[in-house]
Simulated assay, not measured.
Amino acid sequence: MKHHKPQKRHIALQPLSREHHHGLLLCWKIKMGFKKNISSERIWKYANWFYETHLIPHFEIEEKHVFPILDNTNNLVNEAIEQHRELQMLFTESNKATNTLSAIEVLLEKHIRFEERVLFPEIQNMASEAQMLDIEKMHQSESFQDNLTDAFWK
């Protein structure tokens, strides 16, 4: 396995990186649900809650306030937006199958790794301090409130 050195994240992007951590935990929870033979309905209930409560607002902040730093013609931005759309399609698919959950788990992890290792470093390199201050003012980290109604992963 390739080891990635942790990157120093600008303070303005740290709340988004913390949200990415919770997204990776969703991936882990889906995997644990599969490992424990939890019904896909139970996993979907949590995944849908996470999507509506955390991912939709997260995607909106990135697309409206962070990605424009690089411009919407940038290939990295286009790739991230394409992944957002794919994830939205998977989460809103009417057929709530196990293989869709599996696809979400794989794509979400890939997407977060891409943003953390490739896109965010590029944004940090290109952004002015004023742009970073705008992001920082606009998006403060909220403490993550998990939905433990059915903690199937434990």
Rank of each mutant, 00 (worst) to 15 (best):
S143F: 05
E109H: 12
Q124D: 08
F34I: 12
K137I: 08
L108I: 05
L87H: 06
P68G: 09
E63S: 12
K110H: 10
H58M: 07
T100L: 01
E142M: 06
L13G: 02
I56D: 05
K64G: 07
F120A: 02
A103D: 05
P57S: 07
D146F: 02
K29V: 02
K36Y: 10
F144W: 13
I69M: 03
L148Q: 11
L25A: 03
C27N: 02
N48L: 14
E142N: 05
F144K: 08
T98V: 08
N48F: 13
S143N: 11
V118M: 06
E129H: 04
Y46F: 15
K36F: 11
V77W: 04
A47T: 15
E41H: 13
P121N: 04
I123H: 04
E82I: 12
H21C: 04
E136Q: 10
S128D: 03
E19N: 11
R85K: 12
W44L: 06
T73N: 14
R113E: 08
S102F: 08
M32Y: 09
T92R: 07
L76V: 13
E129I: 05
E93C: 09
E79A: 10
F120E: 05
I104E: 00
I38H: 01
L87T: 08
T53L: 08
H139F: 09
L87I: 11
N147V: 06
V118D: 10
I112N: 02
K5F: 12
I123R: 04
M138R: 15
E122L: 06
N78L: 10
K5H: 14
Q140T: 14
L133K: 15
V106I: 14
E105V: 01
I38V: 15
K96L: 02
L76I: 13
W49N: 14
S39G: 11
K5G: 04
S17H: 06
N74P: 01
I135P: 00
K31T: 10
K137C: 00
E136K: 08
E52H: 15
F91R: 01
T100M: 01
H3C: 13
A80S: 15
T98E: 07
E86H: 03
H3P: 08
S39K: 15
S143W: 03
K5I: 14
E116P: 04
L87V: 08
H22Q: 08
Q145Y: 01
N72Y: 14
K36M: 07
V66I: 12
L87M: 09
F152V: 09
K96M: 00
I81K: 04
N75L: 13
F144D: 02
E93T: 10
N48C: 13
T100H: 03
W28G: 02
F50H: 11
H22L: 01
I43R: 00
N37S: 15
L13C: 00
A47Y: 05
L55E: 03
L148F: 12
Q88I: 05
K45M: 12
L87S: 05
E86P: 00
R117M: 06
F91E: 00
N95R: 03
L108C: 04
A151M: 11
I81W: 07
R18G: 05
I112K: 05
D150P: 05
D146I: 03
K36N: 10
H10K: 08
E79F: 13
A12K: 00
K35L: 15
E19W: 00
M1A: 09
T149Q: 12
R9T: 10
K31Y: 05
H54E: 03
K2A: 08
